[in-house]
């Protein structure tokens, strides 16, 4: 497990994680306010680690997304950058994501938050298997 984590091209990513587009931190640790934030962070790093997404491509897109909407919360820009870079690389098109989003929204009660948003907190029942 540790061995795999060490295969992340750390020299590049660690260097950028403290640069001008670095994630929010508290006491040195990266801060995630919601489960989707840690998820989208991990997806990008997983793609980079496997060599499917050059870190620099993502970083440039993140810089562009932050510049385009400086007041947008950091992790939303990060998520937008991921979608943009995947679309540019023709790995995943926006309409595919839209379609899947609608499918997920149509899940029966208990699997989404449409009907129970007042009943449960966030981050439960998304079925990520962790």
């Amino acid at each position: 497990m540790t061995e795999q984590a060490e295969q992340i091209p750390q020299a590049t990513i660690e260097g950028d994680l403290e640069g001008p587009v670095s994630p929010p931190r508290d006491n040195g640790a990266i801060v995630f306010a919601a489960p989707w934030e840690r998820r989208v962070f991990g997806i990008v790093l997983a793609l980079c680690r496997d060599g499917r997404l050059p870190w620099e491509d993502f970083r440039q897109q993140l810089i562009a997304q932050i510049a385009a909407d400086p007041d947008r919360p950091y992790w939303e820009s990060w998520a937008a950058a991921l979608e943009a870079v995947l679309s540019t690389a023709a790995a995943l098109q926006r309409d595919e994501v839209d379609e899947r989003e609608h499918t997920l929204l149509a899940r029966p009660a208990g699997h989404d938050h449409r009907d129970d948003e007042h009943g449960h907190g966030h981050g439960h029942g998304h079925g990520h298997g962790h």
Binding site: E96, R100, H113, H128
Partner: peptide, 29 residues
């Protein structure tokens, strides 16, 4: 919730295309 579903949509598609392994995402985070 909206962001979470959007991210889940991206992740599930990447998994299906064999571009991402959710267990690897867990380990990295």
């Amino acid at each position: 919730d909206v962001r979470a579903i959007r991210v889940e949509a991206v992740e599930s598609l990447l998994v299906e295309k064999g571009l991402v392994d959710s267990a690897v995402v867990d380990r990295i985070v």
